[in-house]
Design a protein around this nucleic acid. Structure first.
Lengths: 135, 135
DNA sequence: GCTTGAAGCTCTAGCAACTAGAGGATTCAC
DNA sequence: GTGAATCCTCTAGTTGCTAGAGCTTCAAGC
């Protein structure tokens, strides 16, 4: 029990990640297991803060758990080339761009539908008609 | 067993929705229950084709199951006003736009990270560093 | 030292929207 | 009548958490 030890609530407040989520990350092996007090409560050190911050940032950027795992593994090998990391980031950027494109199409369709509707009875509703037709 | 009856595989092929998903939609009440043959196999009619197409289109546009349920309910009341439908569509359009905005921010961050990386050792990798820092 | 309330523990179940697989029954064409 | 294709039900898995029940531990104040 060093002075720098944090209980799960402290770590949660410091990183902005919920306690339940921190436990979950421990369970699935994303975050190394914490030390335990005699009573069984988790104690975290500075390395956990760092790692959890890394994980959080990855998740905010939309990386999947598997991606995060891979990124962590690479990041741990300090003298490896960072090509793999860059590759992962690029791949993810592609995914994000694909999603963006899809959403933009959706936006257009929805906008069209919303504009096409001028009130009236459902029977004549252009939105409903647009939804009922396949191309 | 009318001539127009479809077995689940036929309906799947005709609509592009998988058989398992069709059964699932029946289970959760999105699609009305099909008639059954003596042996217990499902038989669908033209109304099912229509409704499933509607559902599929909604899902493609990103509407949630609850939204789809609401849209179907409204669409069924042929002489109601279509204001509620338009309202749902507008609300969904907002959601889509919010997602777009988030993704665009992500895209920028990722792009920046990818460009910042010029190869080298992990230890110096700007991507890893960007991921490790909270703002 | 004792009390008390906050914070922690484990375990289970739930969310959305399907998808996959096991193991068996039905249907249909030949 | 046979064999292949299709269908049936049921269960469990996916992703990434989140909520709750019921119990224990910790830390601060008296």
């Amino acid at each position: 029990m060093t002075q720098s030890d944090l209980r799960i609530g402290d770590l949660a407040r410091r990183t902005g990640v919920g306690a339940a989520t921190i436990r979950y990350y421990g369970d699935i092996g994303l975050l190394p297991e914490a030390g335990r007090s005699e009573g069984g409560q988790r104690h975290y050190g500075p390395s956990h803060v760092e790692r959890l911050t890394f994980i959080k940032r990855c998740r905010e950027l939309g990386f999947s758990q598997d991606d995060v795992r891979a990124l962590l593994t690479h990041a741990d090998q300090s003298d490896a080339s960072c090509e793999d990391v860059a590759q992962l980031a690029k791949k993810h950027l592609e995914v994000v761009r694909a999603k963006l494109a899809t959403l933009q199409v959706l936006e257009n369709s929805l906008e069209y539908m919303v504009h096409a509707c001028h009130g009236g009875r459902i029977e004549d509703c252009r939105i409903v008609k647009a939804l009922a037709n396949h191309d």
